[in-house]
Simulated scan of single mutants.
Amino acid sequence: MTPNEKLKIARQLAKLGVDIIEAGFPATSVSEVEAVKLIAQEVGNATVDEDINGHVPIICCLSRCRKEDIDKAWEAMKYAKFPRILFFIATRFNDIEFGLEDATRSEREFLYEILGEIIKAGATTIGIGDTVGYCLPREFGQLVADIKANTPGIENVIVAIHCHNDLGLAVANTLEGISSGATEVDVTINGIGERAGNASLEEVVMTIKYKEMLLGGLYTGINTRHIVMTSKMVEEYTQMQVQPHKPIVGDNAFSHESGIHHDGMLKNKTTYEIMSPEDLHLENLVIFEYILLCSGRQTLKAKLIELGHNIDGKELNDLFWRFKSVAETKKVITDDDVLALVSN
């Protein structure tokens, strides 16, 4: 993304209510330095939405453990009210390889030792990375629990987790990690990220929202009504299309094809929806998309009433079969198509 696109998304993330915006990696290019500096100056010093009561997010950037990287990072970050630099290094201990990256495949005792030394050196947050998306949820949860139980000084720092999606388990691992005591999670909009991506913000946030009681009362400060807009901005600027069946923000997430499902929705929305569209600012979402031959008479009748035509009996039956005939030749039938059928 260009620095200006990154700035726009950072503003939207602040409006969304995220606590920390990881703005970039200044050592990689002049463009990254410019982007991080812009975000630090403009988003890192001001409230962007009256609804979030003066919330100014921490602006964070990446840095390798090299002096030149650190200098570049600080030069870009120093303008923020709450600046943070995230140092990363691998911890998989095999021959001479060393660091906190790839923690899920690292030797446990070595992890406890190195994390203890990092905490003694002044770290306030320690990160546990499933960098290659290797873990099952129970394995990742156990890793977090073991680190919390065996690392000297761990009670004085924030435990953060960073999960990748190579096996499609990033969200499940993230939820298991917070159930085991982590209090900060790395997530991305639409689940974008290296290879198969990272844990998806929208999926993690909405799961916590609707499973709060089962997760021990956990909650986030995210304003869920801004999720869809943020998703669409990221999709546009990155040109990474969201799959239609993507949970929460995919085009099909709240659409219903089956006639049986439509009938159930008309009687009680909770029959086939576990989330309220209103929570995502989708009050005006049209759930009645007529796809192929899946819709029933009651769905068609409800759509006709919505369009101002109360049709019943034989007239409705005749219209329904004409509607089915058209549906055989068109993938999606619009409101205009329905009105045309009525006028005929």
Results as ranks from 00 to 15, higher is better:
153 G>M: 12
333 I>Q: 10
322 R>C: 05
252 N>I: 04
270 T>M: 05
269 K>C: 09
185 V>A: 15
201 L>S: 00
265 M>K: 03
316 L>K: 01
171 V>D: 00
47 T>P: 11
49 D>S: 01
236 E>D: 11
237 Y>E: 02
139 E>Y: 01
205 V>M: 01
68 E>T: 09
253 A>Q: 03
230 T>C: 09
65 C>N: 12
182 A>I: 01
340 A>P: 03
240 M>S: 04
231 S>G: 15
21 I>T: 04
241 Q>P: 03
194 E>I: 13
64 R>M: 12
48 V>W: 14
291 I>H: 02
127 G>D: 05
218 L>F: 02
339 L>W: 10
125 T>K: 02
258 S>N: 02
275 M>R: 15
6 K>E: 11
297 R>E: 13
108 R>N: 14
127 G>R: 02
277 P>G: 03
152 P>H: 04
165 N>A: 11
35 A>W: 01
38 L>N: 08
136 L>A: 10
2 T>D: 05
94 N>M: 13
75 E>D: 15
179 S>N: 15
185 V>R: 07
57 P>E: 01
334 T>F: 04
25 F>N: 10
227 I>P: 00
330 K>I: 06
56 V>M: 10
339 L>R: 14
92 R>S: 14
252 N>H: 06
88 F>T: 10
230 T>F: 01
162 H>M: 05
147 I>N: 06
42 E>N: 07
104 T>H: 13
341 L>A: 11
246 K>I: 02
263 D>S: 14
286 V>K: 00
78 K>S: 14
297 R>H: 12
20 I>F: 13
19 D>N: 14
51 D>Q: 10
251 D>C: 00
87 F>G: 07
309 H>M: 00
143 L>C: 07
47 T>Q: 12
78 K>G: 10
165 N>H: 11
13 L>D: 03
315 E>N: 09
258 S>E: 01
54 G>K: 11
337 D>Q: 08
42 E>I: 07
57 P>A: 06
228 V>H: 00
305 I>W: 06
114 I>M: 09
191 G>K: 02
263 D>G: 08
315 E>S: 14
297 R>K: 15
201 L>D: 01
195 R>P: 07
177 G>A: 05
20 I>M: 13
53 N>E: 04
162 H>P: 02
200 S>L: 08
56 V>P: 07
40 A>G: 12
107 E>N: 15
138 R>D: 13
87 F>R: 03
269 K>D: 08
114 I>V: 11
265 M>N: 10
104 T>A: 15
242 V>F: 03
140 F>M: 06
144 V>D: 03
91 T>F: 09
285 L>Y: 07
229 M>V: 05
146 D>W: 05
62 L>W: 11
314 K>R: 03
